[in-house]
């Protein structure tokens, strides 16, 4: 149980760090739109999602 003497102050420091990070994130506006970025992973590729690429094959010109 003696390890608590170390762990509790550490948890306090970690929690405060987390709070600072949260504040910085919201200052940068990272929480303003929680829906759109989920789709931006789709935008990595020129051909969006697998199914659609295969669906679209028929119409593509080489």
């Amino acid at each position: 149980m003696d390890v608590l003497i170390l762990l509790i102050p550490m948890s306090v420091v970690l929690a405060l760090l987390a709070a600072v990070v949260l504040v910085m994130m919201s200052r940068q506006g990272q929480f303003e739109d929680l829906d759109t970025p989920g789709f931006s992973v789709l935008a990595d590729d020129d051909r969006p999602v697998e199914q659609s690429a295969s669906l679209a094959d028929g119409t593509r010109q080489p």
Binding site: L42, D46, P48, S52, A56
Partner: peptide, 12 residues
Amino acid sequence: IEAAGMAGYYLA
């Protein structure tokens, strides 16, 4: 949309 190769929109 189709011509832009973005038909994935309809799935998503």
